[in-house]
Design a protein around this nucleic acid. Structure first.
Lengths: 213, 213
DNA sequence: GCAAAAGTGTTTCAATTACACCCATGT
DNA sequence: ACATGGGTGTAATTGAAACACTTTTGC
């Protein structure tokens, strides 16, 4: 008698929203309340079984649309978890993590049993999902320092300060505006659009965009 | 009617051996000749179906022992591949990569239909395994620059030159011995054992070991 | 004019690189 | 003694960090 191994795809979805207490931008993520055993009633990462006709990334996208109604601006495989003690029945989870833009985020329509939490303050989750969230956070915070993923949180056009605020929110640090500006503009792919952001109560900052090579 | 999704674990196994032409140390990996369709007769990464009672990493270890007869000094998950066009039947592969020590490597007994190849000169492989090997090589070469995995290629005790030769072999570069030495010894976890390597035709180099914290 | 953030300049400090030179051993 | 790699010293270059200062807008 052969035991069946379940194959599921889950996604850690990050968005930037103001922290309920401090008001400063922080990472949030949506969780889904389980309506079945095991872990009935507990919060868990959105996900579902892998459909035979569906790509791994496509499956993550489907989950993302179902829970947030949005397209991810960044989607990346995180890790595959297959410990034999993760769940009463053997299940291997391929986990993705995704970033969604705050401007689109406003348009988000949460599905049933979906609720957003501050990423660093999630409750006790089902399965090993607390470990997974922690791992995803570490990866995001590491990767933003050496890659372009911060732009997945900005619009097409952005000011240097907006980009800096993304870094500050994700990494939970304060960065020197002058030095950040220089280091950012050292990247030749970041070019000024010529336009400026208006409506600020001070000097209007220049708008830039990321050249797609 | 439900289509079954196969779940397999494959491993890219690296060892350092002298290059057949240049004689300098290079990365090698073992491949297995397929004895079944699809891709019958083609070389492929060692691997097999995931057993219900087996951990993902344990499955990789089993494969490693079967093909090389050795224990890995380093084993790490690489990526999971699940494209719907990878194979006629739908198969999701969770791929690991492993490093084995050269001293142990000498003890290796190759299984049937197993042959070692220079990692940068592998033939046309089955499935998408050429892509996977390339990806594993990139990861290894990137990771050796910021982590301790080089030690997975040295013995318990090592000279600074031996460690440098590992870096040079993996990254295919020449490194300044003086600077490499300083940067290496800047790591407080690398401590002298007090012993020296004898039998060289020149000044006997000091032996070090990596403190396990 | 004043506040506030944009944007520029400058000084300091640490890390990397290149390379000259001395040391200890086998032959 | 001399060839060879081990090991040390040091000047030049680069980049990160800290911070003073000027600019441009809304009010």
């Amino acid at each position: 008698m052969e035991q069946r191994i379940e194959l599921a795809v889950s996604t850690v979805i990050f968005a930037l929203r103001p922290h309920p207490v401090s008001g400063r931008d922080t990472l949030w993520l949506p969780l889904v309340r389980r309506i079945r055993e095991p872990f009935l009633g507990r919060w868990a990462l959105p996900g579902g079984p892998l459909e035979p006709a569906e790509d791994l990334a496509a499956s993550a996208r489907t989950t993302l649309r179902r829970t947030t109604g949005l397209e991810p601006s960044h989607l990346e495989q995180l890790y595959s978890f297959g410990g034999i003690d993760r769940s009463p029945d053997r299940v291997v989870s391929i986990v993705y993590w995704a970033l969604v833009r705050p401007d689109e985020d406003a348009r988000a329509i949460d599905g049933e049993n979906v609720e957003w939490f501050v990423a660093d303050e999630v409750p006790d989750l089902a399965f090993d999902h607390n470990d997974i969230v922690e791992y995803a956070l570490r990866r995001l915070r590491a990767k933003i320092t050496y890659s372009d993923i911060a732009h997945a949180f900005t619009g097409e056009e952005f000011t240097i300060a907006q980009l800096r605020e993304v870094h500050e929110a994700v990494r939970q640090v304060r960065l020197d505006p002058a030095n950040f500006r220089r280091q950012t503009l050292a990247n030749p792919r970041i070019v000024p659009t010529g336009r400026h952001l208006t409506g600020t109560s001070h000097r209007p900052p220049a708008l830039y965009r990321l050249e797609t090579p």
